[in-house]
Design a protein around this nucleic acid. Sequence first.
DNA 1: TCTGGGGTCCTAGGACCC
DNA 2: TCTGGGGTCCTAGGACCC
Length: 431
Amino acid sequence: MYALIDCDNCFVSCERVFRPDLEGKPVVVLSNNDGCVVARSNEAKALGIKEGVPFYQLAEQFPGVKIEALSSNYTLYGDMSARIMAIVRMYAPRVEVYSIDECFCDLEGMEQTFDLKRWGEELAARIRQWVGMPVSIGIGQTRTLAKVASRYAKTYAGYNKCCVIDSDEKRRKALAGFPLNKVWGIGRAFDAKLASLGVRNTLELADKPEGWIRMLFPLPFENTWRELNGVSCIDTTEVHEKKSICTSRSFPGMITSREELRTHISNYASRCAEKLRRQHSVCNILTVFIMTNWFRKDLEWYSGMMNVTLHTASANTTELVAAASAVTDRIFRPGLSYKRAGVIVSGITPDSAIQLDMFESDVDKRKRLDAISGTVDSINRRMGTETVVLAAQQYPADPKTGKAPHFKDAILHNLRTPCYTTNLQDIIPVK
DNA sequence: TCTGGGGTCCTAGGACCC
DNA sequence: TCTGGGGTCCTAGGACCC
């Protein structure tokens, strides 16, 4: 059996722990640049606020309605998440963190000694008490069925935050009442396709013969179908080495200057290098992409993307920034207004086994550059991110203050809440 | 005026190699 | 006039997840 522990409206709930005045109100949390709605309270969902709507449209859609909106505060959410996962680990030996707001537990061997329904109820109550986060727990024979169960636990208060599907009878009953587009692995496109094939609910899909699935759907979909039938075949065991790492941003305004774009891209490359070093990896492919504003139909649309293969795999800031900068020059088209750009690194291998280039002439230079990156990392860890950066990452100084703005400030967060749990200055006073 | 960011896997076509 | 078979790599796009 598997359990899914899933936070209820995670980002909103994190904020409410420190802002109890937000309880009972429609609350939304926004994406970077306060662009889109990424999380909603139940009250906001009940109003009909859809996920992903642009923030500025809320005022048009809901005139006169008081909606509390907050910028996203990932430092806070990450810390809250870590606390929750730590509690789950006290309750189950094998925990797979699947995302910031959910984790799976492999419960093999626990069925005999525990009443799983009570186990789940206790865990949910403990997380609520210790961290303040409401969670819903679903338990089933496969991870997909655990997901189904967690949705029931979330939707109906009668489950007391934990729903267990532990018999074929319960499985069939649960699937018969389950909308296809809420199944893990079925998105808009498959939902539409299934509808056109006359499949009306999840049980009807599960009952289709294997050959039918295989003929009409791509490979990964077969796994979803098997899981619905109680055959576990989707593994979420944590992978420590990612296959690709991406740093990208949309700009609050638009960028026309090559130099400004290059400065941003240098910062993305630097972030990618840091992420690589954090997971003890190196990459040998670096991709840069830039694009104009998709939504501005009155402006020319352009999207440029280019790879560069590094002679020697690297996680070195200097080398990745130089590579990214060179690629940027090749895809940059003057006269356009750019809205979004990013750097992707791939071809990732462990940094313990770097294959040197046959023609690498100056191995010592590489070692020196790596040592510099390591030193910069430790300074920035201690003194704060971007205390030390390459000159290429530096934005022009503000003429008024004479100070150069930081990359981390290049995003708008007008409705930002404090880092209650990670910054001493932000700790709330207790009277 | 204002429209997120970070991943995974799969497929298909074109360029190029032998 | 007739025009193969087996690869790799890159690009681009589409599906899904959070």
